[in-house]
Amino acid sequence: MPLEHILLLGAVLFSLGILAVITKRHAVVVLMGIELIFNAANLNLVAFSRYDPSLLQGQMFSLFVILVAAAEAAVALAIVLRVYQHFKTANVNQIVTPEK
């Protein structure tokens, strides 16, 4: 498979992730968009690493990004659950902090 096809798929995933983050208002969908962005970056890292088999930096960095994304997802979902308990909504636009 040529590198251009893999990079095009990465660009499509990245664009869909950005579109989800910008247009959607539900917190879980925004988190899914962020995960799409991480997956697009991982795909590009592994694709570039594939064309130099003696070096594994892209694959190792991709594993590190996957670990960080898993931790981010766990923390972000905990925050979303806490916000839902407090504000009774997961809609990002309806979360309003009280004035002091």
Rank of each mutant, 00 (worst) to 15 (best):
S62R: 00
S15I: 04
A78D: 03
D52K: 12
L19M: 08
V96M: 13
V92Y: 11
I37Q: 03
A74W: 06
V83D: 02
N93E: 12
V96Q: 09
L77I: 06
V29T: 15
A71D: 06
L43H: 02
A78T: 04
L16P: 00
F64H: 09
D52E: 15
V96S: 13
F48M: 08
N91Y: 06
T97A: 15
G58M: 01
M32Y: 11
K88N: 08
K100C: 08
G17F: 00
H86W: 15
V92P: 01
R82C: 02
A78I: 03
G33N: 08
F14W: 10
G58I: 00
S15P: 00
T89S: 09
L55A: 15
A74M: 10
M32H: 09
L3A: 13
L55E: 14
Q94T: 10
V30M: 11
I6D: 01
A11C: 12
R25N: 14
L3R: 06
F64E: 07
A41H: 03
V30D: 02
L3I: 15
A20S: 07
V92G: 04
L43P: 01
F64Q: 13
V28I: 14
M60N: 11
F38A: 07
L13Q: 04
T97R: 12
A76V: 10
K88T: 06
Q94W: 13
A73G: 10
L9D: 05
A76H: 04
L45T: 00
V12R: 07
E35H: 09
Y84A: 13
L7S: 12
V12E: 04
F61Q: 03
L13A: 05
Q85I: 12
T89M: 11
L77G: 03
T97E: 15
K88Y: 04
Q59M: 08
F61K: 00
V68G: 09
H26F: 14
V80L: 08
